[in-house]
Design a protein around this nucleic acid. Structure first.
Lengths: 167, 167
DNA sequence: AAATATGATGGACGATGTCAATCAGTTTTG
DNA sequence: CAAAACTGATTGACATCGTCCATCATATTT
């Protein structure tokens, strides 16, 4: 035998022969596994850029760019992090000169976030890279990609809202 | 106005009003964001159990249970981790008395992994919990859940194979 | 027999998410 | 109006994570 089915009584030697069992019907398994792969790929693409490491920075960069004056807690919710984790990310970005933190006029507790010019430029560069990151799924057809995104987008928003109520 | 569309010129105050921009068409964004939510939920469910923290342990537990004699590198590939990360997980599990590491008869470099009785028992308990973890997506219909799982499963296997060739 | 490749480990490093504590500003309540 | 309760944001501590590099033992190739 060359590359066909393996002897079921023998120990599995190749990943392709693995039976995932319960995990095969578990959404979180696939999400968590793919997260690792996707993150690795993304960070490779961002190599050297000033937003390496972590979902937070990219999300923050884009959301602040698109919604000047947005507040930290809203970004945290969108990135599914808690406020304290996001605060650290924003602190880093401020040190890097990517964003400004201003006090909201209406409510002194709230911060209004803005991109600096440097931040704007970086956002443009990162946007291009993020668009290219679809290449990681070059095996996947546009139909499939669209389908899975549509589904995940729906799930995402429901989770965000559900987090909203609890958190 | 009460809860309708917000003034587009005003700063965004609620997550629901956020426009994700490029991220809205980026699979990795949704995967990474959902990963955080899903992981949080799963770890809450595993509270106190001997497999808390990390995708690796659960995957290892199930794969070893289903494929006695499986080797570490195969589990690493299925979990999308690198070998050294998986080695640490397996080391922990061995210390906990969940698995045995035996030397493969055919190839001395290779380890053959087996569950201990304690490991078997734990696997059963964890299986039940993992099944329940679908409740996290109670908002999502069975159709949607099945659809998204089918799509992600396909993507998962393609990524696994693609990793195989490079790694 | 020597060189090369493979499977598995271990240490070091920076970054992550969580949690509890803190602080400032706001709203509620009496 | 003052006290209490609440909210948004920040900080520090802690355990863990993924990565990278070096190492070691064993197999395979030449």
């Amino acid at each position: 035998m060359t590359a066909g089915k393996s002897d079921p009584s023998a120990a599995v030697t190749r990943v392709e022969d693995v039976d995932l069992g319960v995990l095969d019907d578990t959404l979180s398994f696939f999400v968590r596994a793919l997260n690792l792969a996707v993150t690795r790929d993304l960070e490779a693409r961002l190599e050297g850029m000033e937003v390496a490491h972590g979902t937070g920075k990219i999300t923050a960069l884009f959301l602040i760019g698109r919604h000047p004056g947005i507040r930290p807690s809203v970004i945290a919710a969108a990135a599914m992090k808690d406020r304290s984790a996001m605060a650290r990310v924003l602190g880093d970005m401020e040190k890097q000169g990517l964003i400004r933190r201003e006090a909201d006029i209406a409510d002194g507790r709230v911060q209004a976030l803005h991109l600096t010019e440097k931040g704007e430029r970086l956002a443009e560069d990162v946007r291009a890279i993020v668009r290219q990151s679809r290449d990681f799924f070059h095996d996947i057809s546009d139909e499939e990609y669209t389908q899975v995104i549509d589904l995940l987008r729906g799930i995402y928003w429901r989770v965000v809202k559900s987090n909203q109520q609890k958190g």
